[in-house]
Amino acid sequence: MEIDIMRLAKLAKLSIPEEKVEEFRKKMEDIIQMVEKLPDLDTQGSLVDPTNTMELRKDEVQPSFPRDEMLQNAPYTAAGCILIPKVVD
């Protein structure tokens, strides 16, 4: 099985140094080989599980957190916001 490491890295926002690509590919392939040990199973249908359900929350307001606490770990801030490199959408 040939794994497109570069495509995966791009999706995951990782960069693998040129000299490590082969090593990564080899290790990944070993892992995939191990992980491929799955029996034939019917994978039709949804993964919804009515035997294990959750309760929903009431629509009641809880206090928000102070802004300075929420931004205390941000590397760069300005004007009460987190500062990021310029983006255009």
């Binding site: 794994i3 490491i5 995966l8 890295a9 999706l11 995951a12 990782l14 693998i16 990564f24 290790k27 990944m28 892992i31 995939i32 992980v35």
Partner: peptide
């Protein structure tokens, strides 16, 4: 990183 890549895959 290896596990992230496997999970992404």
């Amino acid at each position: 990183q290896r596990r992230i890549l496997l999970g992404t895959y």
